[in-house]
Amino acid sequence: MTAALALGDDALVLSHRLGEWAGHAPVLEEEVALANIALDLLGQARVLLSLVGDEDELAYLREERAFRNVQLVEQPNGDFAHTIARQLFFSVYQHLLYERLAAGDGTFADLAAKAVKEVAYHRDHAEQWTLRLGGGTAESHERMQRGLDALWRFTGELFQPVEGTGVESIGVDWQALRAEWLAAVTDVVERATLTVPTGRQSGAWQAGAGRQGLHTESFGKMIAEMQHLHRSHPGASW
């Protein structure tokens, strides 16, 4: 397993979840924005997966236990606040990570240099909505807090390089990344008049489970839908 697969799966799976919003967004501008972010992530996934092998074989023919994405990105969309909370946690992480990768001279430098510009936009979008929902109405405030609280336990995994994925060897100081992520998230959450959750930051099994191919239950259904047509026509090209 390589880091490209882990990072590619993160982008692929989050892109898929955001794609589920199409036609259901609260306002037309968000139809455009969510599709735009999904498309950026899908582009990143295609480049990353292509470093490992055939993008379609990897996306459509692996089973649940072979996916290496963090559990955070596979979490169902929930309401708009839940989606924004997931997006905030992930895009701040991805932005900080890709900034580091872009500055280095590793395999991912070129890819990260391009992607970091997209991710900066995703982060801005998530931060702005966190501020709006947190500082909007009593209802939006409550929903946004609920989203942050519900997803908090999936954030620890982001900084847990797991042996075997290669993520540990891509030249990133994970402890420093974690500290910077927490500072950035805390800043936005507090400006949004919300509270940074205090619960444990580990998921269903343990932090790092997704990177080992241990996923949450909704993930299997998600990939069943994603892979169904491709698997129904073995060997066909599209």
Partner: peptide
């Protein structure tokens, strides 16, 4: 069909198209 598009290339094309349609509406 976005969530069931049979290849990543087709999925990207379809997502971009649906996004364009929202833009046309705007």
């Amino acid at each position: 069909w976005i969530t069931r598009a049979p290849s990543l290339r087709r999925k990207a094309i379809l997502m971009a198209k649906v996004q364009d349609e929202a833009g046309h509406g705007l």
